[in-house]
Amino acid sequence: MVKPIIHIENVHKHFGRIHALRGVSLDVNVGEVVVILGPSGSGKSTLLRCINHLEVYDSGTIEVDGILLKTAQNINTVRREVGMVFQSFNLFAHLTALQNLTLAQRKVRKRSKAEAEKIARDLLKKVGITEKADSYPAQLSGGQQQRVAIARALAMNPKIMLFDEPTSALDPEMIKEVLDVMLALAKEGMTMVVVSHEMGFARAAASRAIFMDEGQIVEEGKPDKLFTNPTQERTKLFLSKVLQI
């Protein structure tokens, strides 16, 4: 059996009195695309943020690429291998698109300026925004910003990409341009964990869909099966509401 690249075992997380994660266990294999859905407050974003330790979990273990998330040094090593894309893009506002892509390459990967810029330009070309390389984030549309953010994460050559509701803050017509980039990435065999309610993307790209509620994984399975024939009552209720829209 292949060792999973992400191994999450019985993770608990509290925010004050709120029990956000109640013993979540999940394995993700190399090349898998896992889509997590669930109502707001179900803990899906928290779980995602625990994988690169942006959120500190209370108990349980998370292993990424065989590295246990515990010491500070380990955490920085893991973060290097795990790219993250945020709902609110979080591009560095004082840097151009190109500089957004080169900063961490130079500081963390210790690449030369020329090398980092070459990689950055190639990636910007890949996500389709070559002509905006010298623009600042405030000059870009939401969809363009999110594509730059994806390119910024990719510039670190991550083994895993995490997406935290990447299209939720976007206008409908910009969602497609971001999803297209994500689809292409999935086709290339990138390991991805995606928190999203984009059913179309899940059907087209996901190898597995997971439904979370109240800090627990309620149900998981092939996206087609989960969307059309959910076994749990809670999943049915949620999907009936989401699919109506």
């Binding site: 690169n52 942006l54 920085n76 090593t77 973060r79 290097r80 795990v82 790219g83 993250m84 945020f86 609110s88 979080n90 591009l91 560095f92 506002a93 900063l103 961490a104 500081k107 963390v108 953010a149 910024r152 994460a153 670190m156």
Partner: peptide, 13 residues
């Protein structure tokens, strides 16, 4: 915004 620090940390800085 907090997201600036989070994005930076998530890149391994």
């Amino acid at each position: 915004p907090k997201g600036q620090m989070e994005a930076s940390r998530s890149l391994g800085m």
